[in-house]
Design a protein around this nucleic acid. Structure first.
Length: 259
DNA sequence: ATGGTGGGGATCCCA
């Protein structure tokens, strides 16, 4: 089964890209971020007509996440636990297939800029909540994938120009340390497992010709529980959609699991 | 050092 994460930067503006991507790349499961739409305005037919079940956790204007699956989704959770006052739609999770099957979490981790400041504080607090929840999920000892836009550049090799990001919330030591604490729970970075080489990116800014100059960063990740990592066949970044008309500034990241 | 682009929705925020 092939699972992908794709920050589409506006599901209403990205209809053509989303339809083409589903038709050509045919994910079995996909998590989407930054749908920037309330649930009622998501173009459901575009997705369901292509054979997908769809669960959304939308928000007006910003954020918003979704899970698509060829097989039914059950036991859906919306929102990251740990702060009932958090109104931002950045987390959705569901089970694919039978109980004991694959648990998929789709996440849009806060950007955190400018740092320091309240947005950076929110990012770090959100990552602490995610760590606590991820630790709980691991106790189930099932194949589990935490997939999404982490807004974290884990290592200098994950940026074409790491020096340009030195003071950015995506690359500050606190953000990277929080990402390492997630990994230290026992997760595996799927793309890094299969691609130790540098130059693997998932985001290129719209500005200053970043795509044409390949001035990218790797911030979209699939973290695998040990039970999922045991089943990992391959993982990769699909760069093609970044070059399409009216693209997202992110491109899909994939894992193929023997499930 | 500056300004460069894009989505969403409201005349500015967020990335």
């Amino acid at each position: 089964m092939r699972i992908a994460t794709f920050n589409i930067n506006g599901i209403k503006a990205r209809g053509d890209v989303l339809a083409r991507w589903l038709d050509e790349s045919k994910p079995d499961v996909a998590v989407l971020q930054e749908i920037k739409s309330i649930d009622a305005n998501v173009p459901r037919a575009l997705i369901e007509d292509r054979g997908y079940h769809l669960e959304t956790h939308g928000q007006k204007g910003f954020n918003g996440v979704a899970i698509l699956s060829r097989t039914p989704l059950t036991d859906v959770r919306r929102g990251l636990p740990g702060d009932d006052g958090d109104e931002q739609a950045r987390w959705i999770e569901a089970t694919v297939g039978d109980a004991g099957g694959l648990r998929v979490c789709g996440l849009y981790l806060p950007n955190g800029n400018p740092a320091p400041g309240p947005k950076f504080d929110y990012k770090l607090a959100w990552m602490a909540r995610m760590q606590a929840h991820a630790k709980t999920l691991l106790t189930q000892e099932v194949p589990l994938v935490l997939a999404g836009d982490y807004n974290v550049i884990p290592q200098p090799d994950d940026a074409a120009r790491p020096e340009a990001w030195a003071k950015d919330a995506l690359f500050l030591p606190e953000s990277r340390a929080a990402f390492r604490r997630l990994l230290a729970l026992g997760f595996y970075d799927a793309v890094r497992l299969r691609h130790p080489e540098s130059g693997i990116y998932s985001f290129w800014d719209y500005q200053a010709g970043a795509w044409s100059r390949n001035d990218g960063i790797r911030i979209d990740h699939l973290l695998l529980s040990p039970q999922a990592a045991d089943r990992l066949r391959d993982a990769w970044v699909e760069t093609g959609p970044r070059g399409w008309d009216k693209p997202s500034d992110h491109t899909p990241v994939w894992a193929d699991l023997d499930l």
